[in-house]
């Protein structure tokens, strides 16, 4: 455990607030007209998934959690927990889905991820900023529909419903932003 000046906190920093572990999802500097600099943070509780919005003066000291990262392979999800296997030790462990619900849309069985741990407790699954996924279900585009910007919904292989341009077909690969869960582009392998 170390202390960190609030002004140095970045997106992705792990913090201890009120004895609960959090990850910083959003950080915004606020400089009131005539006053000290402040940082407005949006934190996610890594045990419950609950969101906490707090404000600190840039000079405030916060408690930073020193996490450990372990490369692990995603095995499967049983609906309440994700099952992983540590790549080094082959040890299997579970991560409750509750605080990491979105991760289900971006992990395919057999893929490896960095898992962050603190005092033996699994805190977070580090997901990539973007993920390429195959379209599992898509409506056929209506012939003659050439309206620019027309869109439709498709479902990916992981079950994520995404709004995409009309030309995207079933079986194609699309790139999704993990943070916004929005379509970015079609991927041609």
């Amino acid at each position: 455990m170390g202390t960190i000046k609030a002004g140095a906190i970045a997106k992705g920093t792990y913090l201890l607030e009120k004895n609960e572990p959090f990850v910083v999802n959003e950080r915004e500097f606020v400089n009131p007209g005539k006053g000290s600099a402040f940082v407005r943070l949006k934190l996610k509780n890594l045990r419950t998934g609950a969101v906490l919005k707090i404000t600190h003066k840039s000079q405030d000291s916060c408690e930073e959690i020193d996490v450990e990262e372990v490369e692990s392979q995603f095995l499967y999800s049983d609906g309440t927990a994700y099952h992983f296997m540590e790549s080094q030790t082959f040890e299997q462990f579970e991560v409750p889905i509750l605080a990491h619900e979105d991760a289900q849309y971006f992990m395919l069985e057999g893929e490896s991820f960095k898992i962050t741990r603190w005092n033996g407790e699994t805190l977070d699954i580090r997901l990539p900023p973007k993920k390429d996924l195959i379209v599992a279900e898509a409506e056929e585009a209506v012939k003659g529909d050439t309206v620019t910007g027309a869109s439709k919904y498709v479902i990916t292989e992981t079950g994520l419903t995404v709004k995409v341009p009309i030309f995207i077909k079933k079986g194609e690969k699309i790139r999704i932003s993990v943070e916004t869960k929005e379509y970015q582009e079609r991927v041609n392998d």
Binding site: V30, P32, S36, F38, R40, I54, T55, K57, D60
Partner: peptide
């Protein structure tokens, strides 16, 4: 239930804590 600042915090910092969190 907001951070009440340190002992030496100035009134304007305390005000800004309230303003930035509750009002702005």
């Amino acid at each position: 239930a907001l951070f009440p600042g340190s002992i030496n915090e100035r009134p304007d910092d305390l005000f800004h804590r309230l303003f930035i969190t509750l009002v702005e």
